[in-house]
């Protein structure tokens, strides 16, 4: 199953490293990354493969949300199915 990680917040050093590190720790493989900086706001979307992960998606999403809050970032981990269902017929 694929999931989408999105990160929005003020640009700072090490955001990508932070997320990639957490993914590696949880055996989550990164499939695709795209990032932009608009008016100093950092926006990153990352598609990851969750099937080999060592944690449940609901657990990981809660963990990442809290981690994001501590760094002033909004981090979401969502099952990719929600985007597919809304934007693909």
């Amino acid at each position: 199953m694929k999931a989408v990680i999105t990160v929005v917040g003020k640009d700072q050093v090490g955001i990508l490293a932070l997320i990639a590190n957490e993914c590696a720790n949880a055996q989550i493989n990164i499939a695709d990354v795209s990032q932009t900086i608009l008016d100093g706001i950092f926006t990153m979307t990352m598609v990851v493969e969750f099937s080999e992960a060592s944690v449940a998606l609901s657990e990981f999403s809660g963990y990442m949300r809290n981690l994001g809050e501590s760094k002033g970032l909004v981090i979401r981990v969502m099952n990719q199915a929600i985007f597919d269902s809304m934007h693909r017929i």
């Binding site: 989408v4 999105t6 795209s34 979307t45 598609v47 990719q80 809304m86 934007h87």
Partner: peptide
């Protein structure tokens, strides 16, 4: 999956 679509849903 387009980034724009992902961000649209989140918005």
């Amino acid at each position: 999956m387009q980034t724009q679509e992902i961000l649209e849903t989140i918005k």
